[in-house]
């Protein structure tokens, strides 16, 4: 029996864009947020690739992608990501801001997962990134799990294999560059992925077009997800302005530089 894999993935600004906070009507926000090019959250993207990979090698499996963001941003990101993995989109029209609280996001996601028709809880694996590149809370997925009543939870996952008996063997990142190896009887389970080990799949227009059949209807019917402020307020939000006085050592001999570095390391 295959898996029913639900991947929770937000969208974030394309890496290396210049980010600047502003105060919006609902609290802190990013300047020009709607203009910044967006990508699927990097860790969640790994989770999606792992899900697609697992589903492809486990017959009778299916992948859903549950994502909350402003509808137009979601559409932009889907154009790229839909070419890389097969999934059915569950779209929530809501904020993608890192300043929205994880509890509120998690509740919206859990409600959306509960509403997926045909989802078999006994085969359910909830995937996501172990944290987002926006909120960076590392909390959303655990709360989704709690809301769904799943206490088999793993974070910083780099590897998942299914044993002959159907149990799950999971490698989680722990301190010191090591991995903890755990065995879980089977689904349901929640897995927050780190990078995993799969390369980014190539763009496949056929995959994209197959996804399109559910993508556009999902986007068109996406309803506004209510996201409560939930008792969190910010007293300051800033980009630290610290600028160091960089001493530039030019035209020094490599011997001198090496000596200076050596003294600095030892000092």
């Amino acid at each position: 029996m295959g898996f029913h894999i639900v991947v929770c993935a937000g969208i974030v600004p394309d890496p290396l864009q210049t980010l600047e906070p502003i105060t919006g009507p609902q609290g802190p926000a990013l300047k020009n947020e709607m203009m910044l090019p967006a990508v699927l959250d990097p860790w969640a993207k790994h989770a999606l690739f792992e899900a697609a990979h697992l589903a492809a090698k486990t017959p009778d499996s299916k992948v859903w992608l549950v994502s909350m963001a402003p509808k137009t941003k979601l559409q932009q990101v889907m154009m790229s990501i839909a070419q890389k993995a097969s999934f059915e989109l569950v779209a929530l029209d809501g904020p993608a801001s890192g300043f929205t609280d994880s509890q509120a996001v998690a509740e919206a996601l859990a409600a959306a997962i509960n509403a997926i028709s045909g989802l078999d809880r006994k085969r359910l694996l909830v995937f996501g990134g172990w944290e987002s590149a926006s909120r960076g809370a590392g909390a959303t997925l655990q709360i989704v799990g709690e809301r769904l009543g799943i206490v088999e939870q793993f974070q910083g996952v780099d590897e998942l294999s299914v044993t002959a008996s159907g149990s799950l063997r999971i490698l989680e990142r722990v301190e010191g560059g090591m991995h903890q190896i755990s065995h879980c009887d089977g689904p349901p389970a929640v897995l927050g992925w780190a990078t995993g080990s799969l390369p980014e799949p190539p763009n496949n227009p056929q995959v994209g077009m197959a996804n399109m059949r559910t993508l556009m209807p999902a986007l068109q019917k996406a309803t506004a997800a209510g996201v409560a402020v939930d008792g969190k307020s910010f007293t300051s939000v800033e980009v630290p302005k610290q600028r160091r006085d960089t001493r530039i050592v030019k035209d020094a001999s490599t011997d001198d530089i090496a000596r200076e570095i050596m003294e600095w390391i030892k000092g």
Binding site: V12, F234, V237
Partner: peptide
């Protein structure tokens, strides 16, 4: 937030 770019 945002990968250690914004401090709150």
């Amino acid at each position: 937030y945002y990968r250690q770019r914004i401090r709150a």
